[in-house]
Amino acid sequence: MATNVLTQNGTFRMDASLASASDVCPVCKSTAQTSPNLRFKVSSKCYHRICEGCVDRKFSAGKAQCPISGCHHMLWKRDWRLQTFEDIQVEREVDIRRRVWRTLDLTNLGLVEPEGGWENVFEDLRGYNDYLEMMEEMAMNLITNIDVPATNKKLRDYETANGLRKDKDDPKALLKAPVRQPGDYPDLSGLIRGLKMKKVAPKQAAYDVWEGVTKQREYFSLSAKHESSWDHYTNKKATMAGGWNVADYTEESLLRAFSGLGVFIENEKGGKMDMRLPLATIAPHADDVF
């Protein structure tokens, strides 16, 4: 029997693990009659099906051989899981598909699904359809046991070239990040054909916090020392403790004194921005206030 279990996010988890009337565990011979709520688990390696109790008994101690006679698969307890589909063949088929699909998923190549769907990362619709057919072809080969080694090799080569191979010891880490050059074809293995080249973005200038304003002073220049009456503050501990600095103070005073110089309100009104006159035109009138 299968049930659809409503999960928290509102979708249904399909579960075909509950024993039907005719189900018998091949290991302990339990049936739904002898033990109510009998559930079955499936091995994801050999797709044999035994009852939950047997899984617990045989695999709690660690890795063991599949209890079905003639099957030599070595399995962990985690290799046994609840059944999703009634038909074990479909269960297997979907597993294989999952593997092929995950591997050939275009996001692995750093692509993003465009507005109009994935077909738009290809040169044309034909290319996309060919890609779909190729995936189907590979999945079907694996499912029907045709050219299995060759197909697996293709997939492996693809993974290797694109840096998708998982590290055996640390499944989360990739074995080696691919060295992608700008202007490289998106699939480094060349398996998926017809993809659009990624546009190489024009080199952008470094970000400028000052938005073009230079530090260069137009109307005055700071000398190391200006003649003034505050000199005696300069080295006083009390003033310095407050952070007061005569050089900064001088600069700010000068900035304030000259700010707005060469800016004419009429020009600004006319909508013309940045109408400052060149330095030379004003300079003669500008006195050194200090």
């Binding site: 075909a16 034909r126 359809n129 060919d130 779909l132 057919e133 189907e136």
Partner: peptide, 28 residues
Amino acid sequence: AIPGNIRRAEHFVAFLKRFIEYLKTRMK
């Protein structure tokens, strides 16, 4: 054009079968 994964006759039949199996399981 017909999507690439159901262009070949055998692919299409497998596709149908998978869909039917899904429905069967959902029906339970």
